[in-house]
Every structure is written in C-alpha cells, then in structure tokens.
Computed example of a mutant assay.
Amino acid sequence: MAVMGPLWAGDPPPRRPADRWVLLRTWLFGLAAVSLVIAVGFLGWQLARLAAPTVVRRQIDVIDANTEAPPRPHLPASPFER
C-alpha cells in the first residue's frame, strides 16, 4: 500500500520544543518593541508639555523684536470731545 500524503493525515506535524522557544522569543521581542515605542512616546509627550511655555515665550519675544507696531489711529484729546 502506497502512502499518498504525510503520515499524520490532516493533523499538523508535531512541533519540536525549539519551535516553541523561537515563537516565544519572537513574541517577547515584539512585546518589548511595542513597549519601547510607547515609553518613548510618553517621555516625548512629557518633555513637550514641560518645554511648551518656554518655546511659546521665545517665539513671542522673537516676533515682537522683529516687527514694528502698527501706527496708532488718531484719537481726540478727550473722550467727551466731538
């Protein structure tokens, strides 16, 4: 009688213990990579939150130093004068 397929006929081949270790190591590496991305994002958010007031103040100072104030409109000497 000739065998026309694998001996396990429908069941997946038996896994070797080394395959499980490779799978576990792959999952742990993926989990570590995702955790690292989340940690870097969180630290960047905290740094940006702390630096924002200084950055905005510096931008306002640079804009004020490099631009001239618009001319003031002509106003009467007294608000009750017509």
Rank of each mutant, 00 (worst) to 15 (best):
G5N: 13
T54C: 07
A2Q: 13
P14K: 05
R58K: 15
R57V: 05
A32L: 14
W21S: 14
I63T: 09
T54N: 11
S35C: 14
P76T: 12
L28C: 14
E68A: 11
Q46K: 09
W21E: 15
F80C: 02
P71T: 01
L43T: 04
N66V: 04
D19I: 00
G30W: 09
P17W: 09
R25P: 00
R57G: 12
T26H: 05
W21D: 15
L24K: 05
T26V: 03
P17S: 12
A52V: 03
M4C: 11
L31C: 13
V34S: 06
W45G: 06
P79D: 11
I38E: 06
W45K: 10
V22F: 10
A77H: 13
Q46Y: 02
P70A: 12
G5E: 14
P79F: 06
W27R: 14
R72V: 02
Q59W: 02
V55D: 03
A65P: 00
P73V: 04
E68H: 06
A39R: 01
W8F: 08
S35R: 04
I38Q: 07
R82C: 00
A9S: 08
L50S: 15
A69C: 05
L50Q: 15
A39Y: 01
A65V: 01
R20M: 01
Q59S: 05
A18W: 04
G41H: 04
G41M: 10
L75R: 11
P53M: 03
R20D: 03
P71N: 00
M4L: 14
V3C: 04
D64H: 08
D61Q: 15
M4N: 10
P70M: 05
T26R: 13
R25V: 03
D61F: 06
D19L: 01
L31T: 10
P14E: 06
L24I: 06
D11Y: 09
A51I: 02
R58H: 15
P17H: 12
G41D: 09
M4W: 05
P13V: 01
R49I: 01
A52P: 00
L23Y: 10
F42S: 02
R25E: 08
P12L: 09
N66K: 06
V62Q: 09
D64K: 10
L75I: 05
P71G: 01
P71R: 01
I38T: 13
P71H: 01
R49Y: 09
S78G: 08
L24Q: 08
L28H: 11
W8I: 01
